[in-house]
Amino acid sequence: MADMTTNTAAGPRGPKPKKAFSRGNIFLYGTLIVVSMYYLLPLYVMIVTSLKGMPEIRMGNVFGPPMEITFEPWVKAWSEACTGINCDGLSRGFGNSVRILIPSIVLSIAIASINGYALSNWKFKGSETFFTILIIGAFIPYQTMLYPIVIMLREIGLMGSIGGLVLVHTIFGMPILTLLFRNYFASIPEELFKAARVDGAGFWQIYFQIMLPMALPIFVVAIILQVTGIWNDFLFGVIYTKPATYPMTVQLNNIVNSVQGVKEYNVNMAATLLTGLVPLVIYFASGKLFVRGIAAGAVKG
């Protein structure tokens, strides 16, 4: 006992340094690595399968790396894969998706940012009520609104066209984007707005010269949110477009789940990977902003 006290008095002070590989740590990292493998497995399988030839796939090991790398499945998925009678590959779906994506993003973000600006700086009677309805609308199952929208699109002659789908994406993107912009504009000091008002600036002048330049980061978040959301949409695409204007996700599903012909798993996986590539690139390139976007989407109200 006495020995010990003298020892501690003479020895080094401070807490005992932690071992790098304590038992708890090994368990923690072990769990994380195993779980990571579950999450990474599908991506790995997609890549590996898409680089194999069909004979190698028939031999069996999905997890094995390709013995002979071939890019043929990619070429085939892009330019030859068949949906029904059309055999021009996913490139058509890709083109459609791009033509849907760009106007949808511009329109939905323009409208939502103006909404958010009006809601936080130009409140009028009933504005909060409309906003509440809009947010509640985000929770209503889309199925309840699908058919009325079919009628509306038919009335204005946009049913089945890309323009119609753009409109639908603009409508259904509005709740979350409006919330995003409203919360952002509400956090900008009100004095700034008042000073501009005193100087005689009007609605649009304040929006374009003060609010817009200040809101650039939130625009980036909104774009990330919309690119992934619209690109990944399947439901609206399948209902509001026709085969010639199908977005990539719908076409992909038709290619892979078609019952005709021999199943070419390598082409299917190449097609799947191609469709997933755009959101994946956005995800890995945007990093923290993506998280911020979904966090904004998560914290409603």
Binding site: Y39, W231, T249, L252, N268, T272
Partner: peptide, 17 residues
């Protein structure tokens, strides 16, 4: 990262696995 992928892609990959 899987959250960035669509349900269609998710469904097809797991169908294959």
């Amino acid at each position: 990262y899987p959250f960035a992928l669509s349900f269609v892609v998710t469904g097809l990959v797991w169908q294959w696995i």
